[in-house]
Design a protein around this nucleic acid. Structure first.
Length: 378
DNA sequence: AATGCGGGGAG
DNA sequence: CTCCCAGCATT
């Protein structure tokens, strides 16, 4: 795993001829390859789209999210919110419902807010300057660069995870790509390589290459259009790049939730607007503390969160779910209402809902796995 | 600079 | 199962 530092330093200096070749032929080869990838373009409904609104939606959905996952969400989003005005006027609940299951729900809230900014501050017209675009909620360096280059043809390089991996292998970069400075380094390097005439296609070609050819594991170098320019390939060391430090291990929490029945309805609560799963609906419950039985934890959590007293019934299901920084083992019980009036204590709202109506609300994935198990008319 | 924030695919 | 993937906002 660890190379000694003197050899690592040496490999960070590609031959001068390699650098010259990069400058003269990287863009040329990439764009010729890009133009031949009709299958790839066909799979992405936003590819070739001229409307900045559509490009914006696609780029935000693609943050940390794979193309195959985004495609259906993108189509459905445009059916609900075909333009910036319709999004600005929409209800946040409706926006979250369309985003439901896609993750990182702040993105949906920021899209909603940004649409309102565009309507109120820019007369509904998408801003065209990089610096202005970047002020929109939810738009950082990557998305501002993507929009500037793809929608407005400005020569601004994008540096997402795919591009960083490609760049690292091309140059045998010793810098840890987890270090934010490495991104700046790549951005500066790519600024010299991006062609003025087709900056958007160049950026998309690099990302396509990273996703489909220069993959994290087992890169497909035999079909790579820039194989001869690649330092890692030429040294037979593609497995050594990019250099990336290990992530910390994530803890696992024991969680218990309850489906509380009363008069044929079940109780759901809405999470606070910010933070984890912000604004989504869920079943009451929480962490099982040390030394606590799941049943006792659930009685305690329901009392703390809603003020209700319940009787724990049968175990409905048990499931595992992974978040970014922790994992949960979730146990779900059916509960019977005993006494008390439900008041939102840990949440912003409580609702008694018929099981058949639950799909109208936006639930996180872990809760969605429970919904099909509920009997429609208990 | 470090941390919080979902979900999905490959092996 | 386990491992790996990846932008923005906040602090």
């Amino acid at each position: 795993m660890s190379q000694n530092s003197s050899s690592s330093l040496l490999i960070n200096r590609p031959k001068i001829s390699t650098k010259i070749s990069l400058i003269f032929s990287l863009a040329d080869r990439l764009l010729k390859w890009y133009d031949r990838q009709s299958d790839t373009h066909t799979k992405m409904p936003w590819r070739g789209e001229a409307d900045p609104y559509c490009i914006w939606i696609s780029e935000v959905m693609l943050q940390q999210t794979q193309v195959a996952t985004v495609v259906d969400y993108y189509r459905r989003w445009l059916e609900h919110f075909p333009n910036v005005q319709s999004l600005a006027q929409a209800n946040l609940d409706e926006v979250l419902k369309v985003w439901e299951g896609l993750g990182y729900y702040t993105r949906a809230r920021n899209l909603h807010r940004a649409a309102q900014v565009i309507v109120s501050d820019y007369n509904g017209e998408f801003p065209q300057q990089y610096n202005t675009i970047k002020t929109l909620p939810g738009v950082g360096e990557y998305t501002a660069s993507a929009l500037s280059s793809i929608a407005f043809n400005q020569a601004v390089p994008v540096v997402d995870g795919n591009v960083l991996r490609v760049y690292s292998r091309l140059l045998c970069l010793v810098d840890d790509i987890r270090n934010p400075k490495t991104k700046l380094l790549a951005r500066a390097g790519l600024q010299k390589l991006i062609p003025q005439d087709r900056p958007g296609d160049f950026n998309q070609a690099l990302m396509d290459l990273g996703r489909n050819v220069c993959q994290p594991r087992q890169p497909q170098c035999h079909v790579c259009p820039v194989q001869e320019l690649c330092c890692a390939y030429n040294r037979n060391r593609t497995g050594d790049f990019p250099v990336k430090s290990k992530a910390k291990a994530t803890p696992t929490f024991q969680i218990v939730v309850g489906i509380i029945y009363k008069d044929g309805k079940v109780l759901i609560q809405r999470r606070p607007p910010k933070g984890l799963l912000g604004g989504l609906w869920e079943f009451p419950g929480g962490k099982i503390e040390a030394g606590e039985t799941p049943e006792n934890a659930l009685i305690r959590e329901i009392r703390e969160e809603t003020g209700l007293e319940v009787e724990i019934g049968s175990q409905l299901t048990q499931l595992k779910h992974a978040y970014t920084h922790f994992k949960i083992n979730l146990t779900c019980f059916v509960c019977e209402y005993q006494s008390g009036t439900a008041r939102p204590k840990a949440s912003t709202a409580l609702r008694w809902v018929k099981p058949g109506e639950l799909t109208k609300f936006a639930f996180p994935k872990a809760n969605q796995k429970i919904l099909p198990l509920l009997t429609p008319d208990k």
